[in-house]
């Protein structure tokens, strides 16, 4: 299935500076698995924050469906 992955803030480097990319991922894959398709393993990124699908924050292991827009955000906690 095809989804769109958008990376925000400091995570953009994982798309070589592009804002978003359409990717083919296995049907029913999780957000975590989809991000690995573009080389982003959230467990290895200290500043990884959270993911949202179609504008709603979801859990990293939630499943995706055809046409979803997956966005990943950096962790921001400074004051």
């Amino acid at each position: 299935m095809e989804i769109t992955i958008t990376l925000r803030g400091a995570l953009k480097k994982y798309l070589d500076g592009d804002n978003e990319r359409k990717v083919i991922v296995p049907d029913g894959c999780t957000c975590d698995e989809a991000l690995k398709v573009i080389g982003l393993d959230h467990k290895k990124v200290a500043r990884f924050g959270f993911v949202a699908v179609n504008g709603m924050k979801v859990m990293i292991y939630d499943r995706l469906k055809e046409g979803d827009e997956l966005k990943a955000y950096p962790r921001i906690s400074g004051g």
Binding site: G9, A10, G49, M59, S77, G78
Partner: peptide, 27 residues
């Protein structure tokens, strides 16, 4: 919260428990 060029803001009423959602999820 801020870091570098980036920031975030939200309003939390009692019971909303947003900080947990932002910082304590599966990621």
């Amino acid at each position: 919260a801020v870091n570098g060029w980036y920031g975030q803001v939200c309003v939390i009423y009692p019971g909303d428990r947003i900080i947990e959602k932002i910082f304590s999820d599966g990621a």
